[in-house]
């Protein structure tokens, strides 16, 4: 039985000569896909990879849960008197920190892919050049949504209550997605020019730790020394957290929201350009 089956496979696995000529007959080429459609196709590739290796989602769910629990119970009592009270302050910051931290996986994915032959094929296709890079980030947005949902659920269980309601929370998550999309271009750039996955991770940590900790995520910057305050004030994470806090608490700080949108545009233009320059030269 089994041997007959193997034989069948063998025969079927040989190219069928008569069919060959018919599939090769020159067909009219379809028009090129639009920039958006090409990017979405690359995003679909990223999603397929998640489908084939779902374990990779462990990172984006376990890590945020750990962050939320750890900091709520570690600092809660000391900083705000009670954990539930601290959570009101902390949760938007933890949401931002966790998602911004996992943006670095974009760089790792680019770096592990770029050496593979499939990249040669992508780069030799007549499509909008940044599409492959945009595709990575689009695929990663899915992870960010997943991480955000996880944190909101765990926050609500622990007693977080957003005064801004569902609209405020969605606005915060939306803003976070916009910023993460923009910020990911920093990682695509590193992913393209670093020599190994490990060095990408190393650099990411070097950038991410000061950026997330030297901010208003955990404590009010008013308690910090002046020189530190001036860094915290220009740190984009500070503004992102302030904007998210405002929408989630229903106070809607237009100035901070605008700051985040402008910073996102600047990040995309600067690091997007650098990424594409590296991509074309690779």
């Amino acid at each position: 039985m089994t041997t007959a089956r193997a034989k069948d496979d063998e025969i079927e696995l040989a190219p069928v000569a008569e069919n060959l000529a018919s599939v090769l007959v020159a067909k009219e080429r379809p028009p090129r896909p639009s920039a958006l459609s090409a990017s979405i196709t690359f995003g679909w590739r990223a999603v397929l990879k998640i489908k084939h290796v779902p374990e990779q989602l462990f990172d984006v769910t376990a890590f945020p849960i750990m962050m939320t629990l750890m900091f709520t119970y570690l600092f809660g009592g000391a900083l705000a008197g009670s954990t539930t009270e601290y959570l009101q302050y902390l949760l938007p910051g933890i949401l931002v920190t966790s998602v911004v931290m996992i943006t670095m996986y974009t760089g790792v994915a680019v770096n592990t892919d770029i050496e593979k032959g499939v990249f040669d094929r992508f780069r030799s296709l007549p499509v909008w050049r940044p599409a492959a890079m945009v595709g990575y980030i689009l695929g990663d947005l899915l992870r960010y949504v997943l991480a955000s949902t996880t944190i909101m659920v765990i926050g609500l269980i622990l007693g977080y209550r957003p005064d801004g309601g569902i609209v405020g929370v969605l606005a915060a998550v939306g803003l976070l997605m916009v910023f993460s999309f923009a910020f990911s271009w920093v990682w695509t750039m590193f992913g393209l020019f670093m020599r190994s996955e490990k060095s990408v991770m190393g650099v990411s940590m070097l950038v991410l730790f000061p950026l997330t900790f030297l901010s208003n995520v955990f404590v009010n910057p008013k308690t910090m020394p002046g020189w530190l305050q001036s860094f915290v004030d220009v740190n984009p994470i500070t503004h992102l957290v302030a904007a998210c806090r405002s929408t989630m608490s229903g106070t809607w700080d237009g100035g901070e929201i605008l700051w985040v949108l402008v910073a996102s545009a600047v990040l995309t233009v600067v690091f997007g350009t650098l990424t594409m320059r590296l991509y074309n030269r690779k």
């Binding site: 080429r29 379809p30 028009p31 090129r32 896909p33 459609s37 090409a38 196709t41 690359f42 679909w44 590739r45 397929l48 990879k49 084939h52 290796v53 593979k116 032959g117 499939v118 040669d120 094929r121 992508f122 296709l125 499509v127 599409a131």
Partner: peptide, 23 residues
């Protein structure tokens, strides 16, 4: 010289991917 297909995807997915990118 070295396979220019995506190892993680299926054969079908690889061809659909390229087909979509060609328009």
């Amino acid at each position: 010289q070295f396979a220019s297909v995506d190892e993680d995807l299926t054969g079908m997915e690889n061809l659909i991917l390229i087909g979509r990118l060609l328009g």
